[in-house]
């Protein structure tokens, strides 16, 4: 593989792994604190799946770089500083209330479903295979989260108002998911990655009616000031927590 293409693919795989790892981390914060016991269990399951998906993308990233696929993912998560993470800042925002976490999960699940469906046809066989496997789990996430969006949107005045507040806060950040990385054009050209503009079109066609029918008003699209290379202040705080034990004795193995 040519160097440019390899670098571009490594960067995209890293971004995909980071998306899953950071969202899974935020979701895991609910375990023990959810509004009903059934959701302590269900949302933990989603978190587990997301972290598992992160391992898949990280392993492909590691193989591409000639690193050990078993140990390198931990290096990536536990030994990088905030500036080196490549997830969409949407996913690092504090978990907020149940409306915020659930709506974020839904927005991401639908993005991921569209992305995975397209990646299943990727010219890169490893990516296509992973996309098909992960896609099977995402069906259940989407079903779960879209039902919650409907219930909370149409539940009570308070639940509707909390969902609207969450949507207003999340919507500008959603655009971060569709902004290409610098090497993405190369990947799109050779059929490894779908055009993110097309992903966004399919995503919007599905998400707009669902939100509207859930009695939520879709805000004007004003993109956030953050990108996969320029994070919010919340990432550093998140990493202080996530890397706390490893930083305590960096030479230790765990």
């Amino acid at each position: 593989m040519e160097n440019d293409l390899k670098d571009a693919l490594a960067a995209r795989l890293l971004a995909m792994g980071d998306d899953e790892a950071i969202l899974g981390h935020r979701d895991s914060e609910w375990c023990g604190h959810a509004p009903i016991l059934e959701e302590d269990i269900a949302f933990a399951n989603i978190a587990l799946d997301e972290i598992g998906h992160a391992q898949v993308w990280y392993a492909l990233h590691a193989e591409l770089l000639g690193e050990d696929a078993a140990s390198y993912p931990d290096e990536l998560v536990y030994r990088r500083s905030a500036g080196a993470f490549r997830h969409a800042p949407l996913l690092e925002l504090p978990k907020g209330d149940w409306a915020f976490s659930m709506l974020r999960q839904y927005l991401f699940d639908l993005y991921e479903s569209v992305m995975l469906a397209k990646l299943a046809d990727s010219q890169n066989e490893s990516i296509a295979g992973a996309a098909i496997r992960i896609g099977r789990e995402e069906i259940y996430h989407r079903r779960h989260t879209q039902t919650w969006v409907r219930r909370l949107g149409l539940g009570t005045e308070e639940s509707n108002s909390r969902m609207q507040t969450a949507l207003d806060a999340l919507w500008p950040h959603v655009m971060e998911l569709f902004r290409p990385l610098s090497g993405d054009a190369t990947l799109i050209e050779v059929g490894i990655l779908p055009n993110l503009g097309d992903v966004q079109t399919v995503w919007e066609a599905a998400i707009r009616p669902w939100l509207t029918e859930s009695n939520l008003a879709i805000p004007e699209a004003i993109p956030s000031n953050y990108t996969r290379t320029h994070h919010t202040k919340h990432l550093a705080t998140l990493l202080d927590d996530l890397q706390e034990v490893v930083r305590l004795y960096p030479e230790g193995s765990w």
């Binding site: 909370l152 639940s159 909390r162």
Partner: peptide, 8 residues
Amino acid sequence: DGQWVREA
């Protein structure tokens, strides 16, 4: 914190 969710 979950009261409004259960009500909804």
